[in-house]
Each structure stands twice: as C-alpha cells, then as structure tokens.
Design a protein around this nucleic acid. Structure first.
Lengths: 269, 269
DNA sequence: ACGGATTTCCGTACAGTGCACGAAAGGCGG
DNA sequence: CCGCCTTTCGTGCACTGTACGGAAATCCGT
C-alpha cells in the first residue's frame, strides 16, 4: 500500500513531520554497534538496522554506501572505548603502559565479540584505530626501540592480543549465553579426554587454563579453569594475574626487554 | 519443467545412470576448498558449490547438515596440508621443531586466505586440528614445560601466528589480485604519511617492514618492504629471515627459552 | 522376473538478504 | 503560490540457506 492518502489522514496529527535529517552517520553507527552487540555479526542486516532506527531500509544508503561501510565505521567507532587514561597519570614505565593498553584492548574485544570476527576481514585504517596504533608506536619508541625491531615488536604484541582474544571469543561467538559457552568448552574437553590415546599430551593438559587455539586454530579446550572475569567490568586493570593472557604477554615483554638490554632485537642470523 | 519424460528420452543413451552415491562428503569438501580458494569466503554458497559438482543444490544436504558444517569440514581438511616432515628426520631441537611447524602453518594460511577469516568464527575441534595441536603440545613438553606454563606457551605461539597471518591476509582478502594488494598498502601508507601531524610515530615507521596490525586491528601499513615471498611455494622453510614474522617468533621463543632457564615461566607476581 | 523398499537425487518454494531505481513528501527561497 | 532541493523510502531484482516432498535408480526378497 504505497500511501494511498497524502500522508495517512489521521484527524489529530499533532506535531509529526519532524523535519530535517532524522538520520545521520553517527546515529547509524551507534545503532549498528548496538545491533552487533545484540545479534552478532551474522545477525546483522541492513533491514534490521533500519528497523532499529524506525527508518526505511534504503534511507541508510544516503549516509553510507554499503553494508561493509557500516561495519568499517562501527569497528573504528568502537575502538575508542579503549580508555587511554590520558593526561592525569604521569608517563608510566613503558612496560606498564603497554600492558595497560593491551589489557584495555582485550576488555573491549571481550565486550564486543564481533570485533575479532571483523578484524580478520578488513584492514583497520579509521582515525581511531590509527590513533591507537600511534600511541602504541610512541610508547615503544620511548622504550628505546626503532626501525625494524620496533615494527616487529608492535606487530608481535598486536598479533598476540588479536589472536588470543579471537580464540577466547570463538567459544561464545554463537548466540551463546554464558551457559552455552561453558557447555561447549566442557564438551570439547570431554571429547579430547575420551580420545586420550590419540591426543595424550592434549588430554594431559586439558582444563588447565583458559587456553586459546591458534594458527591452525588449535585445540585447547579451556576448562573454565579460572575462567575470565566478567568481560564487563571486572578489575584486572593491572594485568599480571593468573590467566593465560597475562602470562603470555609477560613472556613477550620479557623477550622485548631482553632484546633491549642486548641493544638489538636479535636480527636474523 | 519437472522431467516430463522418464529421463529425457534420447535414443542413444549410452551407459548413463552412473549408479550409486555420486556424491560424498569427501568430494564435497574437496570442491568446497577449491571454491573457497577461488571465490573467498563471501563468494562461497551452497548453490555455487553444487554447481561445481554438477549436482543439484539440495543433494548436498544428504551429506551435510548445514553450510556451516561444510565450512567446518573444509577448515579441518585443509589443515593437513601442514606437512610435519614426519619420521625420516631425527627429532630436531624443540626450537627448530616449533619454528618449522609454525612456518608451515603460516604458509598454509597464506595459501588459503579464507582460513584466517574462518578461524575467528569457530573453535577448531576436528581430528586434523587436534592432531596438529597434539604435536605442538608434545614438542613443548619435550622442551621441559608443563602445567600452566606449557599452556601459556602454546597459547601465546598459536595466538601470535594466527594474529600475524590474519593481519597479513587482511590486505588481500578482497578478490584482490596481488596488484590490488600492493595498491591498497601503498594507499594506506600514503594516507598515514599525509597525516604525519596526527600520527608522527606511525609515519616515521611506515613502510619499514611488512608489519601487521593487531588487537584493535592496528595500523601498520606495510610498505611492501620486502613483501612476503609468494605464498604459493616460496622456500622459506628455514624461517629466520628478514621478515617480521620470524623476528616476532624469535622474540617469543627467546622469552620461552629464558623462562626455561629460570625454571618457571614467570608466574604472576 | 518382478514388485516393493531403500537410497540417492533434486525441483520448487519460502523467508530472508544487499542494494538500484525512482517516486514521494517535507522544508526552503522567491 | 510556485519551483527546488533535501531527505526519506516502496518496490523490484538477483541472490542466499534450507524445508519439503516427489522422482528416479538401485537393491533385495521372492
């Protein structure tokens, strides 16, 4: 029914016809993040997004060229939930600074699990992402790195965090309530233990920590050991706790520190 | 036209009616990998897959419950392209062994760029993936690690490789010919340099290596410096070359080695 | 040799997608 | 009051995953 009356012919119309640009890029992106949080990346569609904004689907396309664009924008926008505890604090030691930044990153990626899925799909070139990287490079330069060593260090740390959280999120990527996640992990663990003949080492170490798979995906199975505190707001701002994330991070930072002492980051032989 | 004649009523039919199960899980998975290689994960559809097999779309569903299943199977199947240069070679030093495995993993993930996208989406519990992980755990146990340290080390290495290659692949994830990839990288680099006021450290180090973004995606921009040899078959089986991957890997391995010498992997303070 | 029963295929249908096109409806200047 | 411009959005198209049910080919018991 394509509008058979001028606009609906109600008797008391009140103050409708709100006028100008109801929509905006910002409103769209905000709604997109909400939708992604609620429905995950595979539940995200332009129609649903429009519905959430009480707008027609095609209205969005005046502000955004494609769905991909929306995802790019949402991804960049969500990045500035990473608080950089800016000017008040005095310049921390580089190690504490880096740790803080990475722990924050993890927290955000846990809060919005779709991030890890999207990152694996597109380069991050938005202003917020670039600013975050800038800050990271700066910190490592202050630490004394430069040139290829610098680049390698940044790359390593970033890759680690991304890979680690991706592995964490994988378990709850489905619509999963937390129940489902634990279920899946337990089920996986039991599966490996049941085939302990085929995977002895795996079975031996199953359930020791909240591991994460990896390059080939990996096999961990994290037995919810000490689980990860609620991604929401748990306080692990200091990092260096019992969970595998902090351990691995320290491992890498040790490597960097050692290289620093040596004056170079162990170039290729 | 739903078959108006028994089967087509040709006079010379030869020996058609080939008989039993034309299709099979294996055939489907093989074709799926080919299709993924050719069209990427977003160009993958059940209809296209069926066409490639000269079968009706719905025929696939006798062998597989959902599209997701096909992706799970393809992902696991492609994992055994990781050659483990098995029994002939004598047991290498753990470090060389690990490096070899990870370099192989990277190569496979480069050959099939869709892997990195899929990994970020599902846990890997297939037999091949588990076998790979098993081997990895075993190697690190031989090195002398155990308990949470073991788990942390595995997790770190896996996360690193996954994150690193994901960052690499991101640039060519689009239908991208290699031309497109270089183009995109160069464009990104120029963009950062053009805003050197906003991103000084970034601009200073742009184009130094074939970096990789990270947790938040990162910002690198790899100026194709020494690019990465053709993912196809270039020989960098020894690793430890000039590229960032080997550098970062060595960094982590240094950390592990140091921890080994110390007797523990630096537990939480 | 023949008539089910079983197994394999697959055409059709349906609800959903991203987006091209062009029409409508509101605000504005004259 | 008239055009004009901006913003909104209905409709349509090509495509997706997959539920359903029917057709064909094979096997098996007699």
């Amino acid at each position: 029914m394509p509008e058979q009356r001028p606009h609906g012919s109600v008797w008391f119309r009140a103050d409708e016809r709100p006028a100008r640009p109801r929509l905006s890029r910002e409103r769209i992106v905000t709604a997109a993040i909400e939708l992604l949080d609620a429905e995950g990346v595979e539940g995200f569609s332009m129609r649903r997004l429009a519905a959430r904004l009480h707008a027609g689907t095609m209205s969005l396309y005046s502000y955004v060229a494609t769905k991909e664009d929306v995802l790019d924008l949402a991804l960049d926008a969500v990045m500035d939930e990473i608080e950089l505890d800016g000017e008040d604090a005095p310049p921390k030691h580089w190690r504490a600074d880096l740790t803080g930044q990475l722990v924050q990153s993890r927290r955000v990626m846990q809060r919005h699990t779709w991030i890890t899925a999207l990152i694996g799909t597109r380069p991050l070139l938005g202003p917020t992402s670039l600013a975050r990287s800038e800050r990271f490079y700066a910190a490592l330069e202050r630490a004394g790195l430069s040139g290829p060593e610098l680049v390698a260090a940044v790359s390593t740390l970033f890759s680690y965090v991304h890979g680690y959280v991706a592995a964490e999120n994988v378990w709850r990527s489905r619509v999963g309530t937390r129940e489902d996640e634990l279920d899946l992990r337990r089920r996986a663990q039991r599966h490996v233990v049941a085939h302990a003949d085929r995977y002895p080492a795996l079975a031996r170490n199953a359930g020791l920590d909240r591991v994460g798979p990896g390059p080939d995906g990996g096999a961990d199975l994290g037995g919810a050991g000490l689980g990860d505190a609620d991604p929401g707001d748990a306080d692990f701002g200091d990092a260096a706790f019992g969970d595998g994330f902090a351990r691995g991070l320290d491992l890498i930072l040790d490597g960097i520190e050692a290289a620093l002492g040596r004056g170079t980051v162990r170039g290729a032989p």
